[in-house]
């Protein structure tokens, strides 16, 4: 079998890539594998570790295209801890809390795979740091309840809820100043 990239050398590396449930087989020679970023370094064998961290690397094409662009690459470096996306993809671990913001655009597919399709948190919120978050969640809940009450024509109860929402939103706006 010949390499699907250069169509000259025999393909020495064969693997399957699954993107959004679609399986794609890839047959390339070692040279092209290196160039296309399927293999990390020249003298590094395709180790189990590479295969495992490949989990994070499945959008290599997007990444590869942006590689020649120096500024794009620099954007993919965490300003706080200096970790690059490539490092993250290789190690499979974040460097600091800010990495979550820096690599944000690439994270949903990873989280979906690891967490049965989920990408957003549902659960405990820290009491102190997350005071506003809890309040915002409560407001959202109350608004939903308000809609229900209106639909059921329970206007008296609905008015109470409406006032409660107003009160909570007012205090949220005050405490939320400057934390955009």
């Amino acid at each position: 079998m010949e390499c699907q990239e250069c169509k000259q050398n025999p393909a020495t590396l064969h693997f399957a890539q699954v993107i959004n449930g679609e399986k794609r087989e890839i047959h390339v020679c070692h040279q092209c594998a290196k160039e296309k970023g399927y293999v990390a370094h020249d003298d590094e064998s395709y180790s189990l570790h590479n295969l495992l961290s490949g989990l994070f690397n499945f959008d290599t094409e997007k990444l590869h295209h942006s590689t020649p662009n120096k500024t794009a690459e620099r954007q993919m470096e965490c300003k706080k801890c200096g970790m690059t996306y490539q490092e993250f993809a290789q190690v499979g671990k974040f460097g600091c809390a800010s990495c979550y913001q820096t690599f944000s655009a690439h994270l949903n597919p990873i989280f979906r795979r690891v967490h049965s399709g989920n990408t957003t948190h549902d659960g405990k919120v820290p009491k102190r740091v997350g005071k506003d978050i809890s309040a915002r969640r409560k407001v959202k809940e109350l608004k939903w309840k308000l809609q229900q009450l209106i639909a059921e024509e329970e206007f008296e109860e609905a008015a109470k809820i409406r006032d409660q929402i107003k009160e909570m939103e007012k205090s949220l706006n005050q405490s939320g100043e400057g934390d955009v």
Binding site: K93, F94, Y100, F111, T119, T120, H121, R136
Partner: peptide, 10 residues
């Protein structure tokens, strides 16, 4: 708010 408690490993 979106991701919850942030940890070293995804």
């Amino acid at each position: 708010e979106e991701r919850g408690y942030l940890t070293s490993c995804p």
